[in-house]
């Protein structure tokens, strides 16, 4: 088992004819993901890596039964791409695009509230359920099927930690990046709720960073509701205040959102925190054998 994506995933790629869209379509196919359709307005009738391209998501869903979409279109057009996927009945949208204005995301979140559609991202590296499906840009070769759930606000830092988990001999049930933006569709707690129900997941690693208070909320949730062991890492201990550290969401505002207060919240609520990425894998290995 796994969460969000798996063998049942029938993937549609929005922006499939673009440079990133076509490259990652090839990578996802190579991983074994069931990519059934692509969409680029005006390019209907073409194929990319053998995948049929449609002019719109509605038509693609009707013809192929796609249930999940991944968005590679530029930020300017990504918001409408999300609306189009939701309107066409797509159940899970993974938005890779980076640079969507926060005020647009506020609207997107509100629009999706009444739809049967979950959004992961934007500014997400995607979701992998090892051995089943890869949706997004995460490098497939570092993953191994196993019992650790991994959820993170970043990309390459996640790969670093996953790589070390895999090298320690453990594997992952599902690994995802929820996105580095301040307003995102799916938060840590949403993922933990699903990991709680997932039989294949025995422990979870939460990789947080400076900015906002999603980690603090997560810590309280874990203490109250979550029975499986949780391990954590927080990036940005050396980050100065009021500076955006790459991710739009990674900013300490005044004195709020520091790494220190997040680590404290984790530790006070029973989440074991690794000082370094290496230590996270080491502690995890010690606990799970």
């Amino acid at each position: 088992m796994s969460i969000f994506v798996g063998k049942e995933t029938k993937l549609l790629v929005q922006g499939i004819t673009g440079r990133d869209g076509s490259f990652h379509t090839m990578q996802m196919l190579k991983y074994g993901t069931n990519v059934v359709a692509g969409v680029t307005p005006g390019r209907g009738g073409q194929t990319v890596e053998g995948v049929p391209v449609f002019n719109g998501v509605g038509e693609a869903v009707e013809k192929t039964g796609a249930n999940t979409s991944v968005i590679f279109v530029p930020a300017k057009f990504a918001v409408d791409a999300i609306y189009e996927a939701a309107d066409a009945g797509i159940r899970l949208v993974v938005c890779i695009s980076e640079g969507i204005p926060a005020i647009d995301m506020v609207k997107v979140v509100a629009y999706l509230r009444d739809k049967d559609c979950r959004l992961i991202g934007p500014n997400s590296p995607g979701v992998v359920s090892p051995g089943e499906a890869k949706v997004g840009i995460l490098p497939g070769h570092i993953f191994k099927k196993g019992n650790v759930g991994v959820v993170s606000r970043s990309g390459t830092l996640t790969y670093e930690i996953v790589d070390q988990i895999t090298k320690s001999g453990l594997g992952q049930s599902t690994c995802l990046g929820i996105g580095g933006d301040p307003i995102i569709g799916t938060k840590f707690i949403d993922c933990l709720e699903l990991f709680a129900e997932d039989g294949a997941t025995e422990a979870v690693v939460v990789v947080g960073e400076i900015g906002g208070r999603d980690e603090q909320d997560t810590a309280e949730y874990v203490k109250r509701n979550f029975k499986k062991p949780v391990f954590g890492f927080i990036a940005g201990k050396t980050a100065p205040a009021d500076k955006r550290m790459g991710h739009a969401g990674a900013i300490i505002s005044g004195t709020a959102g520091t790494a220190a207060e997040k680590i404290k919240a984790f530790e006070e609520h029973g989440i074991v925190v690794g000082e370094t990425p290496t230590e996270v894998a080491r502690i995890l290995k010690k606990h799970l054998g």
Partner: peptide, 17 residues
Amino acid sequence: VVNGAGLAMATMDLVKH
């Protein structure tokens, strides 16, 4: 010099560590 914001922060933290 790092690729990715999360890893770049973690790298700074590690140097300090």
